[in-house]
Design a protein around this nucleic acid. Structure first.
Lengths: 208, 208
DNA sequence: ATTCCGCTCGCATATTTATGCGATTGGAAA
DNA sequence: TTTCCAATCGCATAAATATGCGAGCGGAAT
């Protein structure tokens, strides 16, 4: 089965080289190419592709705004952003909008074809520099300041379970300890965090 | 120049097959292998590698807790997590701890060698399923937020108080209503959020 | 070797939370 | 105008949580 692909890019040259690339690939099928977001919004619903190659820097609406609207109406369609820019804002705006992949335009043709298959199969292809930026988003600024750092491994594990909403009995089962040991952890953890209720502990844990 | 690699895994078999793989690669050099997080914490600083292959499910401390400590002390070292588990918690805990890549253990050898070079060069290699999970993390506001949006103003105010850790009685005082009205809000809010405990409600509120 | 600490478990009890089944009022929508 | 619903309150009870006062064991540190 062929993967249906659509292209949204205002640059005629890029559009034609992309469409040529897709037409050459026997397991891909081009369903349409659009020069701007407005056209894409109007035309794509009439002939739904599996994957959309979307330029970020379109005249008029931004590529990610176009993605946001299309993705809401057609959640099954996958969006692969193509851009010359490496800036974080475009990246995170696109991800928030529902894009699944993000490649720089200088990506090699072979890699691009691979990426189209990746997104279609549920992956999230991304240029290495951009992937690292996403990963760094999560890494907290090495400040191990909080009182949570003073917890023992078992206590931290317990606190994590607490934050999931499990009852003491369930936590006991999951950690394979008795409910009285759970109660014991409640005491030591609350004391170390200076709290007196589950909610306070969980908030402190989730917020640092 | 060779990339210096260390291995942390409690499974002897996996350790030996990984070390054999690394020894065979001429542009990689094995600097050490450790059976648990505690050993890794003690030994790795004595002979710093460029990249550490870290198992998540270690006896004793979790792999990501080990990463957190080592990364804090040695920010230049890159960590590549290897695990059999695909669960989100391990993934996000690892990323928060400072890991740069995350692969499933069933990853092909060739792909693993490639990934080691990727992290060393500033990339963030990740199994497709996991990459997608990271990407999806960003595109939640459009989906999950709906339940909280359905709350009435008074209910939202109440939920905010709940998340601050106040007891029902305290919330009643602050909102100048009776404790039974508070209980009433508990019911309606829990129903709208589809939860059955304070902790679940608060987590949903803070993460919305 | 002795002390400290992390981990484990038990019993008892006070307080808080969760939930069921109600009611009244005033304002907005039908 | 009748219906709906947010907001308020009440009583009752089961379940969960918070906390006090213990204990034993094994490993690490001094």
């Amino acid at each position: 089965m062929q993967i249906k692909v659509a292209i949204v890019d205002d640059d005629e040259g890029i559009r034609s080289s992309l469409s040529a690339l897709i037409k050459r690939a026997k397991d891909l099928k081009l369903t349409g190419e659009y020069a701007n977001g407005e056209r894409a919004l109007a035309e794509i619903p009439k002939n739904l592709p599996d994957v959309v190659l979307m330029d970020i820097n379109l005249p008029g609406m931004k590529g990610y705004d176009c993605v946001r609207q299309l993705k809401t109406a057609h959640p099954a369609v996958q969006f692969l952003m193509l851009t010359v820019y490496e800036d974080s804002d475009s990246l995170f705006n696109s991800l928030r909008a529902g894009a699944s992949g993000y490649l720089l335009k200088r990506t090699a043709s072979a890699r691009l074809l691979e990426a189209i298959k990746d997104v279609f199969e549920g992956g999230a292809p991304m240029s290495p520099q951009l992937a690292r930026r996403v990963v760094q988003f999560f890494s907290q600024p090495a400040t191990d300041n909080t009182s949570i750092a003073k917890l023992t491994p078992a206590e931290r594990e317990f606190l994590d379970q607490l934050s999931k909403g499990y009852a003491y009995k369930e936590i006991a089962d999951r950690m394979d300890i008795s409910i009285d040991t759970v109660r014991s952890y409640v005491r030591t953890v609350y004391e170390k965090l200076h709290v007196h209720s589950r909610t306070e502990a969980v908030v402190k844990y989730l917020r640092g």
